[in-house]
Design a protein around this nucleic acid. Structure first.
Lengths: 142, 142
DNA sequence: GTCTCTGCAAAGGTTTTGCAGTAAC
DNA sequence: GTTACTGCAAAACCTTTGCAGAGAC
């Protein structure tokens, strides 16, 4: 069904190589260093295809452009409101997951996406690059 | 500081009136029935402004266009993979929230976004409108 | 009177798509 | 040989922005 194209392999390898949840455009720039004639459309098509197949993860829930993650191990993402960095957190939330499942009753859950937002360790210690504009959302959305 | 414009009030009322997490464009269509000359730009500006003030909720983590929610009470969203509907779920996740906070260590969490994905009660009982294309993501991302 | 907000329209950014040619099988 | 995939370019979206005028206070 699917063919094993050089471009697709490069895209996957580049995505797995970095830890930075790149956008399609960023993947395009990385891939172009190895396949100079690769097109942005090809990158979009392959990222979407691999996300559908479950080979990579698509991050819809972060601000702005869609991002992709080559790391399939269960983990969460932490977005620092001060510096804008996106961190990987590996929290063991099995128990919480089970609780959510049981609470959801007849809604059959196959996937739970969690995004944490706040202030990262670096931004808490003194040097705040860019303090958040308005102090809203103190109450969590959980 | 902020002025009390008629357009802003209409936008807020319309958003609160419905349960359908509309996009900016959908809010625009609703608002236009009451303020025919309202512009899309005004809708975007006001939604963004109210989201920043914490008067409404902005849903970044759902597919496609950004959506807004006029309901500020803590709740989660459930996206049905089969029919595409977006449900509100009111699960009490205080305990889980506390656990996440403690696990996150030096990452100071101010907000936790949770999205649940799966199959809704209606789609489970027989009549599947459009069965999911590929059986990926059986493991949760938690 | 001041200053924020509006409508309009244009621009900006991201993602999708049509098509003819290329490459994988 | 067949058919999925590619590069290119245009189109389709969604969102933001500049500006002059209107409206809130």
């Amino acid at each position: 069904m699917n063919r094993n194209s050089h471009q697709r392999n490069v895209i996957l390898e580049e995505l797995r190589r970095v830890k930075t949840h790149p956008t399609a455009d960023e993947v395009y720039l990385m891939a172009r260093q190895r396949v100079p004639k690769i097109s942005l459309g090809t990158v979009y098509r392959n990222l979407e295809l691999m996300a559908e197949k479950g080979i990579i993860r698509r991050l819809d829930y972060v601000d702005g452009a869609r991002r992709y993650d080559g790391d399939l191990t269960p983990h969460q993402h932490f977005l620092c409101r001060d510096c804008g960095r996106l961190y990987d957190l590996f929290l063991d939330l099995h128990e919480s997951l089970e609780k959510v499942r049981s609470l959801a009753g007849s809604f059959q859950i196959s996937e739970i996406k969690v995004e944490l937002i706040g202030s990262c360790p670096q931004c808490q210690t003194g040097s705040k690059d860019s303090p958040s504009s308005s102090g809203c959302s103190t109450g969590a959305e959980f």
